[in-house]
Design a protein around this nucleic acid. Structure first.
Length: 556
RNA sequence: GCCCUCGUAGCUCAGUGGAUAGAGCAUCCCCCUCCUAAGGGGAGGGUCACACGUUCGAUUCGUGUCGAGGGCGCCA
């Protein structure tokens, strides 16, 4: 449900000024000269709720001084109950606009009526969009990089969903190829070791403890093949075991998927072959040195790519393209891929491959969000290994040690393109230093105050809000009013970290308010207005945390 | 070599075609007769890597240079 009731303040102001502009400068009415007023929100609160900089932009066109233009616009302004006083002309020619109290407090009523839907919109119009993320190979437990991908992708999906898109979450398994073979050989080697048969461990084998655990279970459940001679069966068992383990990790991280897509199905369904044949038919391939190449340079790739090696097997490129063809054919007119920065090269290739298919896929398909590497720190030192996985830190390690909420928040709070330092000590600390506790604490603190008051929160909906006039109250009102736009921006720019930035800001404003003045004043009218304000704030904190998949605790 | 990302306070990082570039940490000073001090207020700290362009206006956009990280080879 859209919460249009107060976001209209901005467009109403824009309409008002547009009208004034035309009245002051009728020449701008005709189309060749048309000029659209842009209303912006100044970052400095002293500059009012909104600002219009059109006078600066029009100075050259009109051949007048910016301040004179601004004055003419302000003079032509129709009367409106949205405004508190006459807008002020400032600096080189900005027009600073202050909202009337009644306009400013409308957001509270909007929050009460929309509740958990406050901030949502319908701009997506039900368009189908797929968010593909995690897509870890079933060769080991999920590591911290997958965790960052999981948190980022899941938050993106929640954001898009809240904007009215029809979102599907998908996990793509590379369940074939050399690495899976490698996995099977690694388990087999442990089985033989266990049976006392001398055999060298594969050169590039997986050495984590989990391989030994899988071998142990395989031996117990398949007594007849305790030596692991049936490699195919070993492989199937190992992949199933690891997929199961990854599922449990994702569950513990509160991340769910709608579809798990197996790479192997692309082969069994003949889609890899069909895709390659289609590219051959379209004339975008050639044979050289016994291999089949795609002329991907024709589509912006920096070199041509091999699709089928000289030994007749396909490179990963071919199924990757085939997979994305299915995304398009399944009706996903938007597709977003969340992946580690170390895989970004494959995206350019896939895009080129899709273009070569000539099936009407837009050139920017799929969109993507990259995440950079993570450094895990504990006690001032980098943590590099875990017991189970051997060479890397697992997602499970973090969830077990610092909890799901802190892990999710930390993974999303930085721009995903930035390298992230995950400080375990900080994530565990219960102090203002810890951003996730800071925000959750703000929520709990409101619950505590409302509990102390003891009244029915729903009745606050009817409170008279006119006493909300202090700087602190005004700061909070404005921030609350920004929430829908914040969500829209985060979704549009695929930037989940903006949600964290926003929540930290809102929490800080709330704490300032509490500490600046005696909060529970004697005056009943003021008290009720303030309680209504913090109840609304609580709802927004809760809605924001929900986007991150983080709990909003009532007590801490 | 080619491609991608990044370069903002001592540190970790936000942010923006506009007015005095922000937050937290760290340093220093201060604040509990309302709720959770798990908090708040204040001080200091900046050539927004550098140069040139576009613009009324550039930290933001473009080009180049320098620096950091990553990717790319019939690898997966």
């Amino acid at each position: 449900m859209p919460s249009a009731a107060f976001t209209d303040n901005k467009s109403a102001i824009a309409a008002l000024f547009q009208q004034a502009l035309y009245a002051a400068f009728p020449a701008l009415r005709n189309e060749a000269n048309s000029f659209v007023i842009d209303v912006e929100k100044p970052k400095n609160p002293d500059h009012g709720h909104f600002a219009v900089n059109s006078a600066l932009q029009l100075a050259k066109k009109l051949g007048l001084k910016p301040r004179d233009i601004a004055a003419a616009i302000v003079n032509a302004l129709p009367a409106s109950d949205l405004l508190a006083g006459t807008p002020e002309i400032a600096g080189p020619g900005f027009i600073n606009i202050r909202l009337a109290s009644s306009a400013e407090t409308r957001v509270v009523a909007a929050i009460f009526s929309a509740g958990e839907n406050f901030g949502n919109s319908t701009t997506g119009g039900g368009q189908k969009v797929m968010v593909e993320f995690v897509s870890a190979n079933p060769t080991g437990p999920l590591h911290v990089g997958h965790g960052r991908g999981a948190a980022t992708g899941d938050t993106l999906a929640r954001l898009l969903d809240a904007q009215g898109f029809n979102v599907s979450r998908e996990f793509y398994y590379n369940d074939g190829g050399a690495q899976i073979n490698n996995l099977a050989l690694s388990v087999q080697a442990r089985l033989r070791e266990r049976a006392g048969i001398a055999a060298p461990f594969p050169e590039d084998g997986y050495r984590g403890q989990y391989i030994t655990e899988i071998a142990e279970r395989y031996a117990q459940e398949n007594g007849a093949d305790a030596n692991g001679d049936r490699l195919e069966a070993v492989q199937k068992f190992a992949v199933a075991a690891l997929r199961h383990e990854q599922d449990l990790d994702l569950k513990a991280f509160d991340v769910r998927f709608d579809v798990f897509f197996l790479e192997s199905s692309l082969y069994t369904d003949g889609l890899v072959e069909q895709t390659v044949n289609h590219l051959v038919k379209m004339g975008h391939t050639y044979e050289r040195d016994g291999a089949l190449w795609l002329k991907s340079t024709e589509y912006g790739d920096d070199k041509d790519r091999v699709m089928r090696k000289s030994d007749g097997t396909y490179t990963y490129f071919a199924p990757d393209v085939a997979y994305h063809v299915t995304k398009w054919q399944r009706g996903f007119t938007r597709a977003i891929t969340e992946l580690g920065a170390d895989h970004h090269g494959s995206l350019a290739r896939v895009r080129a491959g899709l273009q070569a298919m000539e099936m009407g896929v837009p050139s920017g398909y799929p969109e993507y969000v990259l995440h950079q590497m993570i450094t895990v720190m504990r006690g001032g030192e980098e943590v590099k290994i875990s017991k189970r996985a051997g060479s890397y830190v697992t997602l499970r390690d973090l969830i077990d040690e610092v909890g799901c909420d802190a892990t999710r928040y930390f993974f999303v709070m930085r721009k995903s393109d930035s390298q992230l330092t995950f400080d375990i000590d900080l994530a565990k600390s219960r102090s203002e230093d810890n951003p996730v506790y800071y925000v959750q604490y703000a929520h709990a603190r409101i619950c505590s105050v409302l509990g102390l008051w003891g009244g029915d929160v729903a009745t606050l909906n009817a409170a008279d809000l006119s006493p909300l006039v202090s700087k602190y109250e005004s700061d909070i009102l404005r921030t609350l009013a920004d929430f829908p736009e914040l969500l829209a921006t985060a979704a549009r720019e695929l930037s989940p970290h903006l949600v964290c930035v926003y929540l930290a800001d809102l929490a800080a404003k709330l704490h300032s308010f509490y500490n600046a003045e005696k909060f529970l004043v004697e005056d009943e009218k003021v008290k009720l207005a303030r309680l209504a304000l913090i109840a609304a704030t609580r709802q927004v904190l809760k809605n924001g945390l929900a986007m991150l998949g983080v709990n909003a605790p009532e007590k801490m």
